[in-house]
Each structure stands twice: as C-alpha cells, then as structure tokens.
Design a protein around this nucleic acid. Structure first.
Lengths: 332, 332
DNA sequence: GACCGGGATTGAAGCGTTACAACTCGACCC
DNA sequence: GGGTCGAGTTGTAACGCTTCAATCCCGGTC
C-alpha cells in the first residue's frame, strides 16, 4: 500500500539513489546496462516519482493555473480544452479556477497557485490594469492574458481579431447583394461592440460605399432578450435594411425570433449573421450564419506561449490575434 | 524574489519553526499573544506556506482530479463548474483532465494524478468494469463516478434519474391533452434511450392508458441530423401522434426543424419536448420544452461525496440519483 | 522549600527528490 | 611504473514543512 520510493528502487537495483535519479532525469550520463537494469526494476516495482518531493527539491512545480471567469462560457470551454490538450502533452498539469469576474476570488486563486508553486497562469483577468499586471508579475507568476488589449506590450496575450470578424460578416452580406446593413451591437463601451462594428464599417467603405450604408442599433446587453428587442426596433424602422449583422449570436438569435414572429422570412426577407458561432447557431430553427472563432486553437496557442515563457529565458512577449472565419448557414 | 520560508518567519518572530507551524495548523495549542505576534509577522513578510513541502511531509496533497471525457460537453461543463466550486470552497485544488473516452489517455491521467498524490478523482470512466474499479482502488485513489449504473455498490456515484425525467416529460404532454406520444430515442443499446423511454411508458400506463399509446422511433445517434430524419419519419406516418418526446434536445431540435420545414406548426400541430435542456433549447426558433438536469448541483454533490470519502474513515459508499425537472417553454 | 501538573515551546528526525562535489577504476600515455 | 583522464557512480546536503518526544516555566500544593 505504501508507495515505492527511489530508495527502494536503488537498493533493489544495487545502485545508489543518485543513479536512479539520473536514469530518470539525465539518462545519457548513465551506462546503458545500468540504465536498463534500473528501468526494469522501476517498472517491476511500479515506482512512481513523487511529484511533491521533486517539486520541493527543484523549487518549482509542474502545474499551471487556468483562471477563467467561467468554464461554462462556451468560448472559454473551448479555450480550456485547447489549453489542457497542449499543456498535458508537454507534461504539465492544469489547475482549473473560475473567478466569476470577481477580483477577490481571482486573488484567492492566484494565491493558491502561488502556494502550489505554479509556474504560470492563463487568465481572463477580472480587472485588467497596469497595477494588476505588475502585482502578478512581481510575485513571480508567468502570465498569458486572454484579452484584447494593446496596452500591455510586456505581457503575452491572445485574442480574437474582432475587426476582421466584423469585416468578414459584412463583406459576406455585401457579396450577397445587400445594399444596406443594420449592425446590432452590444453595449457601446464594450470593446467587442466597437471593434466588430468597426470591421463592418470597414467592409462597407472598402466596397466603395458610404458609411451611411450601415445603420447601428445598440442593444443593452449581449442577450437573447435584447436581441428580440433589437429585432422589434428594426421592424419598426420605416425602411429596414435587408441584412443585419449582430455582434453576437444571442443577439442574432433574438433578432431572428422577432423577425419570424412578425412573419418575415429569414433569409428571404432579411438576412442575419451572428458572431461567435455558439452551438445554438447551428441548431437554430433557421441555422445561423456566424463568425466562428476557434477557441480550441486559441487556448492551445495561449498554452504554447506560456510554456515558452516558462522554459525559454530569452522569451519575447507577444500578442497573438486570431483571425476568425465565417461559417455560412441558411440565415444569409 | 526568493519566497519567504517558515524559518524566516520563526526568526523574525523570535520563536521556533515548530511554533510557526503550530500557529498555522493547530492555533489552539499556542498562547494567544505568541499566536498574534506570529500572525503579524506572517503577513508583513508575506509568508506563503509551500504546498509541496507540506505535501511531502504529511504524505498527501490537496489536489483532486476531475477526469471528464470532454469539458466541452455542456453537461460536463456544468458538472465541472459545480465540482470546482465546492472543491475550492473546502480548500482543494482541481486538476482538469479530458480523456475523449480513450482508456489509454485516461490511464495516463490517473498515473499523473497518482504522482501528484491526488487523494481522489471525480471521473466519467472510459470503460467501466469490475476490473477497472478494482485497479483504480488498489492504487489508493478515492473515486466518485459520474455514471448511471447500479452494478458497483462499493463505489460512490452520481447520476441523473432518466426514468423519472422521461416520466415527467410524458406526464406533461398527457396533461396537455395529448392522447398519443411518439418517443424518439437514441440508439437502443444506450442506457439513456432505454431509461427515458421506460419513464415515458410508465407515465402513460400510470395515466391508465395502454403502452400502445406510445410509438417508438429509434434514431441512430443523439444528433441534430438524426433528429431531422426522425422528424421526417414521423411525418411519413399515416396518423402521426400530436406530441413527440425526444430522448435528447438535439434530436428534438432536429425534429422541430423537420416539422416546421414541412409546414407544421409547433406546438399547435405537434408539441415537442426534449431532454437535457441544453442552451440551444431556450434559444431555438420555438423555444423548446425540456427536461432539465442541474449539472452544477450534480458536480457539487459528487465533490461533496469525494471529500467525505477522503476525510471520513467511516464513509459509506453511496449512489446519488438526481431528479431532473421540466422546463416548460413554447414548444409544448 | 521541595514537588507536581500542565500549558507553552522547542529540537530534530523524517518526508522523497535533486544536484553537486568527490570518488573509483580501468584505459591509455610517456 | 607512475601519472593522467574521463566515464560512471555515489554520499550527502538541501528543499520547507510537520510532528512528536523532550524541555521549560510557573503557579499551586503539601
């Protein structure tokens, strides 16, 4: 029942613990015959190196924190999976932490990770600021942010190129022959609203049209309900555009519900495009065209960045921007 | 930069390391004044007990494994969150592992957890068998299964009461005045198909009707596409029932797509009820009535069970069955 | 004044690894 | 024969903490 220790392996193999340790960590320094013998003993005895001891000895552990505001967020779920896949592949262990965007909770987690001597953390910061970044850094935690901000060139981060995404959606609609586009954004202060709208406008002007070709409807939140409301507002307009691009799938689904409820046909009367490509987009009554983000790849990239930062002293901080792509479905 | 050790705290506070350790672990044995002084030094110095050392010393760690076949599965995502919440609240650390139902991968994870000296694991087993259970146990890992099986009374497990869920759905439809129900199941060999259908039948017979009042349509898989196909088959029937209960939301959404595409109105012509209450159920064109499972609570319960098993020597293994509940929406 | 009991404190032995300095031992060279 | 070299191996300190037996100290007892 008691776990086998390196000492027992050493005794059994007739060598010193140092040699066993070498077999494990620098096999090239030990003679082939000894190495084989030791290895054999290792598996007949079922020896399993004790991580805690190892960690204590060399001063750092193998765990890294995955600090997300909520794994249930479909995007973050993908990110989590992507990160976990890569981290596990390189022999690291992922500690899951959900903050609910609560700085106090986040702080508790970071503290816990520090106690575990985690080497790094992949995080959606609850409140990003110069101060926060410095604080985390000063405690010796390598960090990769899931955040779309250019303000911190000294931290690695990964994010989605919202502008490019908005542009894709709009370009698609224009290609389908729509002359005017209604853009439903979320709250105006949110970066996603701003950037996705900006992308939409860029597509329009690059197609040689005036910016006036895009009507803006601002929803109070990125929710289904607000989407419905936005849909009603669009219907109330004297001459609604024939296409609507929503900054988020929930808004788009809400808009579609309002439209169909009012008897309009999607896409025949009005085309709809969303953003994020959540699962519901594909399963909707009229499957929704949406801008897809490969959250898995994003998580993987973040993990890679973190590992690089941990292992390579000459690491340069980088900001990775992921290009999304359009998934065309029946709604447009 | 170097972390503060217990020794420095001891020196600074003018006591021995043993006393500092006591302040941390058994505060009641140390005199109030000493205790306060030590505590003060602890936070002015920013001392953080080293988990690895602690773990090495007392022989076991604080981490527990959360081994799921895929966090992206919406149900498991909820479970993960529920488990994490509780585990964190009781000071434990959650190590996330995704197996993709691959026994080899699962094995690697278990091995890794063993090296970390994790005390327990919450797991969706890739291949459940007597042998597997014994093997895991013999290595000293406490285990709680997410699995609906009565075959292993000596292991804790949590699961959903599928029979009760099916019964609820059918009872609801009968109450709405439907005389006959079509039940769309997944593959016949899957427990979910069997149990949910059984529940449906039970409701029907308990309402004094013959079992013949439920038509069975077996779908090849729990997918949207198979749902559409099932929908078409229902339409092709000479006298379709006015209500359909699907063993899964994706099937239900597929059925609804087929129905509306054929010009039938849901729920006016045909009512539809699903199972699982995934996010898409609420956002569908016609919001779907579904049997909801509180995955968060389920994860929490599993966590509680595991902690109990780890901490209480007199622990009795239990099998928890969660009652689902019906969420009524527009589709029925 | 010697003795006792018990609360408070402490010294030191582990816990299982790693890594470094030191050692062994043949082969090889002059 | 003595010396050098290098590959292989090993003894052991150190990592930071917990725990337990041992010690200390002080007020109370007889």
């Amino acid at each position: 029942m008691k776990a086998v220790s390196i000492r027992q392996v050493a005794k059994e193999a007739g060598v010193s613990v140092a040699t066993v340790s070498n077999v494990l960590n620098r096999p090239e320094v030990v003679a082939a015959t000894t190495r084989d013998r030791v290895r054999e003993v290792i598996d007949t005895l079922g020896y399993r190196p004790n991580q805690a001891a190892r960690q204590l000895s060399n001063g750092y552990g193998t765990g890294v924190g995955l600090v997300l505001f909520d794994v249930r967020n479909p995007f973050l779920t993908g990110v989590a999976r992507g990160a976990e896949d890569h981290l596990h592949a390189v022999g690291r262990t992922v500690v899951l932490c959900n903050t609910d965007v609560d700085p106090a909770k986040e702080e508790r987690y970071l503290e816990m990770l520090l106690q575990q001597q985690a080497q790094g953390v992949l995080i959606t910061p609850a409140e990003l600021s110069r101060e926060w970044v410095d604080r985390v850094r000063s405690r010796g935690l390598r960090t990769v942010l899931f955040h779309n901000s250019t303000d911190y060139p000294d931290v690695c981060s990964v994010a989605v190129d919202d502008v490019a995404g908005g542009e894709m959606a709009a370009t698609h609609l224009l290609a389908r022959g729509h002359e005017r586009i209604t853009c439903v954004t979320g709250p105006a202060h949110m970066r996603q609203s701003v950037d996705r709208l900006a992308g939409c406008r860029r597509a329009v002007t690059q197609a040689g049209r005036s910016e006036a070709a895009v009507d803006v409807v601002e929803a109070g939140a990125f929710t289904l309900d607000q989407g419905r409301r936005a849909g009603e507002r669009i219907l109330a307009s004297p001459s609604p555009a024939t296409a609507v691009f929503c900054a988020n799938d929930l808004l788009a689904l809400g808009v579609m519900q309002a439209l169909t409820r009012a008897g309009r046909r999607v896409p025949d009367d009005i085309a709809v495009v969303g953003f994020d490509d959540i699962a519901s987009a594909a399963t909707a009554g009229v499957p929704l065209t949406s801008v897809h983000v490969d959250s898995h790849a994003l998580g993987g990239a973040a993990a890679r960045l973190l590992v690089e930062e941990v292992e390579d002293p000459g690491h340069r901080h980088r900001r990775l921007l992921f290009a999304p792509h359009l998934v065309e479905r029946a709604s447009s």
